[in-house]
């Protein structure tokens, strides 16, 4: 009976045979493996740059705008009424064609009008 080879020697021989098989791999298969590798790497490159494309940024911009609008609305609803009125008055003053100095002296004009009414 033939003595058994040590495992390491046997495994080494198996490894050599397997390597030989890979070295003689069908060229068509090798080419397809190479293409698969390139596709995998290209997909990753595309995935990494895809967020930098303008068309991909639109959803992010839309979400950001919606968030800003939402915060503004919340802010508007929670402001005291007096501040809201004051804000509206400010807009009226800015939109007015009158001289801004007139609004600075508005209290004086109110007092003057009352005095004139009283005087008769």
């Amino acid at each position: 009976m033939k003595p058994k080879q040590p495992d390491t020697e046997f495994v080494e021989r198996v490894r050599q045979e397997l390597d030989r098989g890979v070295a003689h791999l069908d060229p068509g298969v090798s080419a397809r493996l190479s293409r698969a590798r390139q596709r995998a790497l290209a997909r990753e490159r595309e995935r990494k740059t895809i967020w930098l494309k303008p068309q991909r940024l639109w959803p992010a911009v839309a979400i950001a705008a919606a968030l800003v609008l939402f915060v503004m609305l919340i802010d508007y609803r929670t402001l005291p009424k007096s501040q809201l009125t004051s804000g509206i008055e400010d807009v009226e003053i800015l939109a007015s064609s009158d001289n801004p100095d007139f609004f600075d002296e508005l209290d004086f004009y109110h007092w003057l009008a009352e005095e004139m009414d009283r005087a008769g």
């Binding site: 397997l18 098989g21 890979v22 791999l25 298969v29 090798s30 493996l33 190479s34 698969a36 590798r37």
Partner: peptide, 9 residues
């Protein structure tokens, strides 16, 4: 490239 052929086998 170094592993693809063995992985295929």
């Amino acid at each position: 490239a170094s592993v693809e052929r063995r992985a295929f086998r």
